[in-house]
Design a protein around this nucleic acid. Structure first.
Lengths: 238, 238
DNA sequence: CGACTGATTGATGCCTATCAAGAAACGTGG
DNA sequence: CCACGTTTCTTGATAGGCATCAATCAGTCG
């Protein structure tokens, strides 16, 4: 059987999102204005970083001086445990912010690695937190941080099937929130990366995707997954 | 066999910790000073809340206007999913702060329920975030939030045995950090609460605790668990 | 003391990890 | 453009871990 008439990988190209849909938008906008007004040496924001697939935006232990917003592509954050194991803690799509731990620590606490060719916006943080207030960035900053600490159910709960469906739903939802296509997902990360995130195995992820495909809940097309009707996959998960 | 010569539950009494060991200390201290200086109507901090076992400090949907620091006892945070399931996201010991989502949302996003008779300190947040700066609370606030967003491996990864051992280690570690006894743990929460947190079943938690007990890695004494040598339980977990 | 709740222990079956192999996609070089 | 090696994904067979059902035991409270 060949349900996988896989199209060429190159057909799918990540697109940048509009600044209006970015979590950093408010902060970024203000920071640019201020930098301009004060005639600063380096722009406080707006500097882009291109990251090739597989390379790091920052690594655990790097000096944490900036926040980053994904503008294009996909960034995975990886936690390195003491025993050397790499645990993926999330995939970040355009509009999402990473590196928030910079507020409390001098160094980043995880690796940020591009899953495909990506572009990020860098927002350098002032060394003195007081400057945040001077610059009027405070409310936006607290929104960003407060939203990040809101308790949410980890993707590593429930059966493997529940994890996969929740992951697909969550991923689509987050893309949709940024004005991107949340139905037809370009899965730029590998199956083993997904398995790592969900704390399961490649084989299991593959099997469940095919299973959902057969049930017409999704449509797997190689690295592209179309969400048809995930709701019908739910009942079995209960 | 009876390895459980369970002592009376009442023997173990939760003790309050010193303010010096509390995560809210810096904020709280400043807030009290300021309230006093300005001769405020209600104290901006220092008000205690007694919570009986099983009752809520706040509920999902309540107006989120304050942070809370656990001063005595144990508070569990529970996330209510759409399908009505209750997922415990953490147990909070004296010195830890809950309700941080108040920074970004008008209402709390989880339930905070006392697992035993507990006491919390309430720190009302100013309605205007700008006041945080005026009051000099900003650096402490950013520390608190930044530390909370640092990526960490969830307790729901790995085998059931790994989860239980990591939970015990983590719990002991957090108590120790507050100057409390991190070796002899009073487990005030039920086994089923632990199972819920670790996304497993009561029977499994019980079996693994007994297993670790037989291996002399811990010493289970009813609701009291003594950590002997968890390191010897690790190798099997790899 | 007796009902009730929480914890422990046992027996059984399902889910998923593991091992193994085949199929498809990708990159490279001819 | 095709051959070839490498990587990624898929599919199958098997074993083991954990959920489930069920029963016993201990502790609590009326």
């Amino acid at each position: 059987m060949s349900i996988r008439a896989r199209p060429k990988r190159a057909d799918a190209r990540p697109r940048p999102i509009a600044c209006r849909d970015c979590d950093l938008n408010e902060l970024c906008r203000l920071a640019v204005l201020i930098a301009h007004r004060e005639g600063r040496e380096r722009p406080a924001a707006g500097s882009f970083r291109m990251i090739d697939s597989g390379t790091a935006l920052f690594r655990s232990g790097d000096a944490a001086t900036s926040l980053f917003a994904v503008r294009q592509g996909t960034i995975k954050t990886v936690h390195l445990s003491e025993d050397g194991h790499e645990r993926i803690t999330g995939f970040h799509v355009p509009g999402e912010v990473i590196g928030l731990e910079a507020f409390a620590f001098a160094t980043y606490r995880c690796e940020a690695i591009a899953v495909e060719h990506s572009v990020c916006c860098e927002l350098p943080l002032p060394r003195q937190p007081e400057r945040l207030h001077v610059q009027g960035l405070l409310p936006a900053m607290l929104d960003l941080l407060g939203a990040a600490v809101a308790p949410k159910v980890p993707l590593t709960r429930g059966s493997a099937r529940e994890r996969v469906t929740r992951f697909l739903q969550d991923h689509g939802e987050r893309l949709r929130r940024r004005g991107l296509n949340g139905q037809r997902l370009r899965m730029s990360m590998s199956r083993s990366d997904i398995a790592n995130l969900l704390d399961t195995r490649v084989e299991t992820v593959s099997r469940i995707l095919q299973q959902l495909h057969r049930e017409r809940a999704i449509h797997v097309h190689g690295s592209t997954i179309e969400l048809i009707d995930l709701a019908r996959a739910e009942p079995a998960g209960l």
